[in-house]
């Protein structure tokens, strides 16, 4: 506020033109990314919007803290963490599911419900920029949700003087796996959220898809593996749920400890898991873009 009119009414200083910088598409998309990422944790939104994501972050970190404490207490007996880094996501997948179910609709359905979308598309950004910013923001939010407890465990492991090199490489592999989990979760969650302007529908649909598919796949895998005694078929079934799919991916590619009832069957199975994982991510991206090409402006 440097310009001032010397006389006249205080409240009317007249219209001032804007001659400052106008940032291009890329910077606008980055601003939307930052805005959406903050929004996923309720920052810049109402106090009510902060409660759930912060609570989930706390719940997510609590077991990691307990694991870190146990590691320190038992460090004289064992040189390993009670739970490997790479299994943490699957153990806490319920929390991730709730986070996606709450935040994906908050990110997309909200703009659809209030018909804010045309305001974005009448500005310099393209529709793909909008999808990319929202996708990247929710993926990052999920990655942070997974990475936080892993880092707590890592600090605990170092304090317990567990082998530092082994712990570091395990953590890095688990973080790579976390990236896959985050992108798969965000993609599937956003795709469902983009189909409804009603937040409640979005929440219910996402929980149903994640929880139901995981429960069904795990139960079937158990029956087929132990009753039918066909471990390969049980392994293939893991492709049908986002959680077991990403878990299979990290089991085969990153040599992580599997949490699924049955791991991907052999090398061929591993390759298929990888291809299907990328196909799912690509399909979510393509369908989201298709969806937003159709959103009336």
């Amino acid at each position: 506020m440097t310009e001032q009119t010397p006389s006249g009414v205080i409240h009317d200083i007249g219209y001032r033109k804007y001659d400052g910088a106008r940032l291009g598409r890329a910077r606008v998309a980055r601003a939307l990314y930052a805005h959406s990422l903050r929004g996923a944790y309720g920052l810049g939104r109402s106090a009510k919007a902060k409660v759930l994501p912060m609570l989930l972050l706390g719940v997510m970190c609590l077991p990691a803290f307990i694991i870190a404490v146990i590691a320190n207490v038992t460090s004289t007996i064992t040189a390993e963490l009670p739970l490997p880094y790479s299994r943490y996501v699957v153990v806490t997948q319920g929390i991730l599911t709730i986070f996606v179910a709450a935040q994906a609709p908050a990110s997309l359905s909200r703009d659809l419900r209030f018909k804010t979308v045309p305001l974005y598309f009448s500005r310099p950004m393209e529709r793909t920029d909008y999808v990319l910013a929202k996708f990247a923001a929710l993926s990052t939010a999920l990655l942070m949700l997974i990475a936080a407890p892993l880092l707590i465990m890592y600090v605990g492991a170092l304090l317990a003087e567990l082998p530092a090199w082994e712990q570091t490489s395990d953590l890095l592999l688990a973080l790579l796996g976390a990236v896959v989990f985050s992108v798969v979760f965000a993609g599937v969650g956003l795709l469902i959220a983009s189909l409804t302007a009603r937040r409640g529908f979005g929440v219910a649909a996402i929980i149903t898809v994640f929880a139901l598919s995981f429960a069904a796949v795990s139960a079937l895998q158990g029956i087929i593996r132990y009753e039918v005694e066909d471990i390969d078929l049980a392994g293939w079934l893991g492709l049908l749920s986002p959680i077991t799919l990403a878990d299979g991916f990290q089991t085969w590619v990153l040599d992580a400890s599997s949490s699924a009832v049955a791991p991907p069957p052999g090398a061929a199975g591993g390759v298929v898991y990888v291809l299907v994982t990328f196909a799912v991510i690509g399909a979510c991206w393509a369908l989201l873009n298709l969806r937003y090409r159709k959103v009336s402006a």
């Binding site: 506020m1 400052g20 910088a21 106008r22 606008v28 601003a31 805005h35 500005r123």
Partner: peptide
């Protein structure tokens, strides 16, 4: 937020 979506830097958007 809409000002930022039009490409204004954060300070300019607020002002």
């Amino acid at each position: 937020h809409m000002a930022r979506m039009s490409g204004l830097p954060a300070d300019a958007a607020r002002e």
